[in-house]
Amino acid sequence: MAKESKTPVILSLSSGKGGVGKTSLTVNLACALAQKGSQVLVVDGDMALANVDVLLRFTAHKTIRDVLERGEDPMKAVIFVEPNLGVLPASSGVPEMVDLGPAEHVLLGNILSSIVGHFDYVLLDTAAGIGSSVLWLNTFATHNGVVVTSDPTSITDAYALIKILSREYGRKRFFLILNSVATPQEGQQTFDAIARVAEQFLGIQPQYLGCVPRDNVVLKAVQEQLPFVKGAPRSKAAEAVVELAERIRRFKRE
């Protein structure tokens, strides 16, 4: 275990739309960061329909719900899938965990604050949609990652999320990740379109973190419950994720 009181980069990964590959991307980014020797924590922020445990093939015995409702020690709920890669799992099939109330968010904030100091990078994998917990996790993060595909519905939903976070929550710095792109040009063009509209209508300048190509290893990794960064390290997708991790390592800590 690392010493406490680091100042971690807390990166949220949201998308508005579901099915764009947030959880898969989060898990692989976490592995890539951990491979570089950093202490990494993944928080399964989809607190009612958790999936991180599925993609990493482990069974959670204690979840965020136990910590919130029964006051369990949060570090005891963290499962270390690698010595330096921990996961704070969430419950699945618990409707009342979909959108926590303000008091629970305050509590969750205290819980997360008490453990993030053990890590260099904390990745918050949020649920789809723009529910209160998604928005709250984004305000808890130091950096807001937005996962988008070039699908028009994904673009619209990502923009809607950015608009709410900037208008209602004063968030200004967004990092866009284009997932599942046919070509790097497609990724860049999609980013350019969103960035242009965000600049024109919201007065903010999202940054381009990069893109991950459409690659069969991604689907295979989900089937096999083994992150492609580990299972297929030489694949294009894995190389792209390692590149993203490198850029995240250059984030300024605050």
Binding site: K163, A193, V197, F201, G203
Partner: peptide, 20 residues
């Protein structure tokens, strides 16, 4: 003008896809 409404406006939708 800052703050307030968060709904994505028709002109924003148009701007998002204009090049397509």
């Amino acid at each position: 003008s800052a703050g307030g409404e968060t709904e994505v406006l028709p002109e924003e939708r148009v701007a998002l896809f204009i090049t397509r």
